[in-house]
């Protein structure tokens, strides 16, 4: 594990909107906050299919993947993405989920291997601290 020290090695994180929902306020705010905290944020845009997300994570050699969902499709899409990451040899990529996730679904997502679920109203500092504390499993 390499701890990410500020202004040293910027962590690369892909922030992806998956599914059909176009609510991108949250993902945009998080993108900017992470940029200002020294991360390299790769934003591929709306309506990403699980296949497209995995391709982006692979080609961008990302340390983290943040998935933003507000339409309630997380139990359909997140398991697919996690499984496809594994199949692509990308187990080392940490997965975060952000958006409207009912409390009963959170443990299910964590069990799948999601590192953390961030709901609405999360202060940006919480996300930044979490990423800094966990650093990168890519460049061990």
């Amino acid at each position: 594990m390499v701890k990410c020290v500020e202004n040293q090695i910027p962590l690369r994180i892909v922030l992806a909107k998956v599914g059909l929902d176009g609510h991108d306020r949250g993902v945009k705010v998080v993108s900017r906050a992470l940029r200002d905290a020294g991360f390299h944020v790769i934003y591929p845009g709306l309506w990403q299919s699980p296949e497209a997300v995995v391709r982006t994570v692979a080609d961008e050699d990302a340390d983290w993947l943040g998935i933003s969902l507000l339409s309630g499709t997380h139990m359909t899409l997140v398991p697919r993405i996690v499984e496809m990451l594994r199949a692509a040899g990308l187990d080392h990529v940490g997965v975060l989920v952000g958006g409207i996730i009912p409390e009963t679904d959170v443990p299910k997502l964590l069990e799948l291997g999601v590192a953390r679920v961030f709901g609405p109203g999360t202060p940006m500092a919480e996300i930044i601290d979490f990423l800094r504390a966990h650093g990168s499993r890519t460049h061990a």
Binding site: P10, R35, A37, F39, H40, V41, Y43, G45
Partner: peptide
Amino acid sequence: PQSPLTGGALLGDRVRMPSRPD
């Protein structure tokens, strides 16, 4: 561009590029 201050960057060029995962 990368911020000279924080080293952070928002890389959004993929938004306008084709998504061809296969």
